[in-house]
Amino acid sequence: MQASPEAPGSGPEIALEVEEISVRFGGLQALQDVSLEVPAGTVCGLVGPNGAGKTTLFDVITGLLEPDRGRVRVGGVDVTSLPAHRRAKMGLSRTFQRLELFWSLSAGDNVKVGVEASRARRRGGSAHPDDAAHPESTARMLMDRVGLGDLAEAAVDCLTTGSARLVELARALAVQPRIILLDEPGSGLDSAERAVLADLLRDLAASGTAVLLVEHDVDLVMRTCEHVTVLDFGKVIASGTPHEVRSSPAVQAAYLGSSEASR
């Protein structure tokens, strides 16, 4: 386990560590030397203007995109060369900004695929309390947890965007992740759904899960995140508590475009 310079040894275990990731798409430097870490049991925010590289970073972390440079570590283990499904088996899970649901399946079955996938993962490994339960009931419980208990039979393309996002969230939780990356989970949610989401994020952190959150809803970020990293032009321009970040001149510049301040 590598100790980070910022939190030398003292803090909780670092669940996810991203080290100097760089990605280039043709002429566009999508990510440049991006480093961040997410300790277990915390919610960390990743914010930045459109095109700053947030989703690209998620793709790199989960293994859908190969970085030109840099390392990704999950629980201290270097996973940079592992394919996405192997990383998932190490407890990494995510949702997508542009929904990636199984459109042919019902909402409940979407979640069930996740439940069954995680069972296969633990087969032979340590017993989990949920293993006794039927996948059906585990899936139902997860749907309840995101507040969609009554929609298990619904076809996913009949759902509102907000509900569809929550189905994706339930599916991502179904694999019982140690680390979960959420890409704009709040967009399209109504205020009641947002409240459910905020509670859920806190519960996750309390149960020891590391959460990395991309979100444009500033209030949600302020309420839930312990630590915020700000990306701009593919670079980390600020990192700290929500309040530190908000008052950072570089962040003001990134959002408001003052060219002097960003130097």
Partner: peptide, 21 residues
């Protein structure tokens, strides 16, 4: 069967759930 359908709907989501194509 669910997995086959899921894989055809979204290989990316399957990969992030730990399912190999």
């Amino acid at each position: 069967g669910r997995r086959l359908v899921a894989m055809s709907d979204s290989p990316a989501a399957c990969a992030t759930l730990g399912l190999s194509q």
